[in-house]
Amino acid sequence: MANSGPPGRADLSGPVELLVDGRATYIKAPAGMPAPTPWFSISLEGGGGQSPLSDLPQIGSDPAAGLAYLRGVSDDVEEIGSDQVRGVATTHYRAVVNIGEVLAEAPPRDRDQLRHGLRMLGLEQLPMDVWLDAEGLLRRQVTAIDLSQSEFFADPGRPAAAQELVTTVEFYDFGTEVDITPPPADQVTKLEDMLNR
């Protein structure tokens, strides 16, 4: 990746490679970033205040995490109609996710961290649109988070509509060959350690 900025300054406008492996997120250091290793990591382990970074909501860093929301939909799911997603025939549904249900379905080890993140975002319910193909596979998922309800992220100076964060995730080429290998430990620096240097 070419770095057009001044020497020693990270080019944060370019692509960033991200790898999520369970509770660890690895980020490849952008070009020009004065990092001691090619990768740095953020871990969810040690949450509950032991690490300031582990207290950050992890919503959005894991595109596959949205599958958990599907298990928390309320009973009044609306069928919007037929649609095409990347050339595949789908049915479009509109639902509201009950966050309490998502927490109840979450693995016990993830529950506290998830609850903390959702509380920071001020979420109790989450509007969600999903597109399912004929086999029932999730093809597209659109969620809208109203940050104006968050005591941490709300900006009183801006209208609520301008604080709505919309995330679209699309899955395709199911069954494709995947080769994901986390970087070796000697190629990784914990982000907390980098910030303390």
Binding site: A95, T167, F174, V178
Partner: peptide, 23 residues
Amino acid sequence: AVAAAASKTAEAKTARVFFSTGQ
């Protein structure tokens, strides 16, 4: 159908993914 999509999609094991976040 929506609730069942979670396990059906996970059973597919792998996929390509696109995501976008914005206002």
